[in-house]
């Protein structure tokens, strides 16, 4: 594995750990979009269908796939549980989490049927997963822009998550040069995903990085 791939995977892992740590330690779900989290469950369940073929690529690969599936479900369970434990916060979340996900689902489903490697269930599911992932953060970004203020941990979560797919782009270029392989669907969706994050990255740079630089003695 090349450094971009490792760093990408680590930042993906870090993003989820930051999110779970955030919910667990502060005991609040403020600022988190349940819609985005449900979309990620769908992304991982449709992406990792190859797990059922039991032709395992590597130990690392299998563990990571199982982690992404289980942790995404766990986050949704945590958010659902807050319905009773943090009734007010849960209601506030639903009121601000108003992005129309049906358009995302319909658009990515059409994209999967039109753009795929083979017209089979597994291939269409994989393609759907890749296109869906590229836009799954939109409800979360929409919520963030509506509320204006945000908890810094939520912001770090979004940053780490955006960084992961951005790092996959140099990884794909690296693999194209060293192994001669490239997946055009993943590359195109990866570029879209990075563009979706670009505005957020800019704000993150302006607010988080510049501010911390100013705080230096």
């Amino acid at each position: 594995m090349n450094p971009f791939r490792i760093l990408g995977d680590l930042s993906h892992l870090a993003s989820i750990l930051v999110l779970i740590f955030n919910i667990k330690s502060t005991n609040t779900i403020e600022g988190i979009s349940i819609k985005t989290q449900v979309l990620y469950v769908l992304v991982f369940l449709t992406r990792y269908l190859d797990l059922f073929s039991f032709r395992l690529v590597s130990f690392y690969n299998t563990i990571m796939k199982l982690f992404f599936i289980s942790s995404s479900i766990y986050v949704v369970v945590l958010l659902q549980r807050s319905k009773t434990t943090q009734a007010v916060a849960y209601k506030t979340m639903l009121l601000t989490d108003t992005f129309k996900v049906q358009y995302i689902l319909l658009g990515t489903l059409i994209a999967a049927f039109v753009i795929n490697h083979k017209f089979t269930f597994v291939e269409i599911a994989w393609s759907f997963s890749v296109w869906l992932e590229s836009v799954a953060i939109l409800p979360q970004l929409f919520m963030l822009s509506k509320s204006g203020k945000s908890k810094s941990l939520t912001v770090h979560y979004i940053f780490a998550l955006g960084l992961y797919r951005t790092l996959y782009i140099p990884n794909w270029i690296w693999r194209y040069h060293t192994e001669g392989v490239i997946d055009k669907i993943a590359l195109a969706a990866g570029i879209i995903q990075t563009l979706v994050y670009s505005d957020f990255f800019y704000l993150y740079y302006k607010k988080v990085i510049k501010r911390s630089a100013l705080n230096l003695p």
Partner: peptide, 10 residues
């Protein structure tokens, strides 16, 4: 080959 790439990445 594209198939390999897809299952070996996350």
């Amino acid at each position: 080959l594209a198939h390999n790439l897809k299952h070996d990445e996350l």
